[in-house]
Design a protein around this nucleic acid. Structure first.
Lengths: 222, 222
DNA sequence: TCGATTTTGTGAACAGCTTCACCAACTCTT
DNA sequence: AAGAGTTGGTGAAGCTGTTCACAAAATCGA
């Protein structure tokens, strides 16, 4: 299930950092900087400068030696790579606490993401609105996807409903899915799925915290 | 900023998968299975079986050749490694849409996580309750951390407030932080921070989607 | 008991990612 | 114009993680 790198093959690890650079560049632009060094960008993105240079070299030679990178130009270039020119239209499946919070989140716009629809299985919620978006029936998913030109989805259902949601999305033609439900779901080849689980993240932190507490603080090095 | 692996050093990549195995084992236990093979566990966790065996071998020899792993026993062992015996007490910083949704989330209990407090800077929200938890003032953070024995925190503030929140948490003695605010924050050595950003995840999906659309479906291999 | 079968645990090969070190290219000062 | 200082690009080395392949250890049936 590897995606071939035809014209410009960018390593997965690099792709995962490109959005961080975009965020950092926006922050730098807001402070009035027109040009920044790899060192500066690295600090803003929370990585080291060698990796910034290596990552950006995969996109092309967009820096000037002795000077740095032009903030707005680099931002455009990275934006083009992640397909940010036109916003991605996203449907949220599940209008519970999390689905509603995501639907109301104001931070997607500048990141090239538009929440175009919310669908929900519970009939009691259908027709109500979150932040101006009307909640539609889960059964309407194929229609919604087609009418709103939706190409991405966020699963915010209970874990038991996640697989059904994914199947419906795939059947409707969606091939990029972000799953917040704490369960592994199966997808056919050609469909891209990413998993976010808060409890998992906390348990990873738990391992290190546990480690610190049994080994004592001296077991932590810089 | 590496944590030394003193008694039992488990690779980071393995640690990140242990919670997935815990989840999968719980699902298997619910279906009545007492024993499972690495193949079975791999399917349930969404990885391949070789990696399951390699991962579990880092914890010890808990399987039986020709048979598999005992579900409840393995679950206990992994639980012990991530320090799940006593639940971690967590404070949520920020009671906006996302903070509220996390506070109301019912899925933490079985994962060894207890939301013990919610703090918020906006005075209008202080004193109101989310799912039985009273929202307290951000200024009370040191007291709250001490009284509730809090050792972990989730940042659910706007990005501009994230660094301040982190600084206050670190000062209060919290050394495990999960940051939902879409900005990089600086922490001193010895503090563990993990980042979750929905927009970033969607942009990563965007790269692959963009790639599919320019290269055509034939650029995707299995 | 013995052979067939299943499945773990693991060394070894492989692949991918990060870090290092340094050259090349640019600016700035004098 | 030349030297000093700065910073990007990149090959090479080192490290971490994944996959492969198979011996060891267990079960089961006859």
């Amino acid at each position: 299930m590897t995606i071939l790198r035809s014209p410009a093959g960018i390593p997965d690890a690099t792709v995962a950092r490109l959005p961080l650079y975009l965020r950092a560049l926006d922050e730098l632009a807001e402070t009035g900087k027109n040009v920044c060094s790899s060192e500066h960008l690295a600090t803003a993105a929370g990585v080291n400068s060698a990796i910034v240079r290596k990552d950006l070299s995969h996109l092309g030679s967009y820096g000037t030696r002795g000077v740095g990178y032009e903030v707005s130009f680099l931002s455009e270039q990275i934006g083009a790579v992640v397909g940010q020119a036109q916003p991605w239209h996203v449907v949220i499946v599940g209008a519970g606490h999390l689905g509603s919070a995501l639907a109301a989140y104001q931070g997607f716009g500048p990141r090239g993401v538009k929440i175009s629809a919310v669908v929900e299985a519970d009939a009691n919620l259908i027709g109500t609105r979150i932040d101006g978006i009307e909640i539609q029936s889960f059964a309407e998913l194929p229609t919604v996807v087609a009418e709103e030109s939706i190409s991405m989805a966020v699963i915010a259902t209970p874990p038991t409903a996640a697989q059904e949601a994914v199947d419906a999305l795939v059947a409707a033609g969606v091939r990029s899915i972000l799953n917040f439900a704490p369960t592994a779901v199966q997808v056919p080849a050609g469909v891209d799925i990413r998993q976010v689980d808060v409890a998992t993240e906390l348990q990873i932190l738990g391992y290190h915290a546990h480690r610190r507490s049994v080994a004592g603080p001296e077991a932590v090095s810089s």
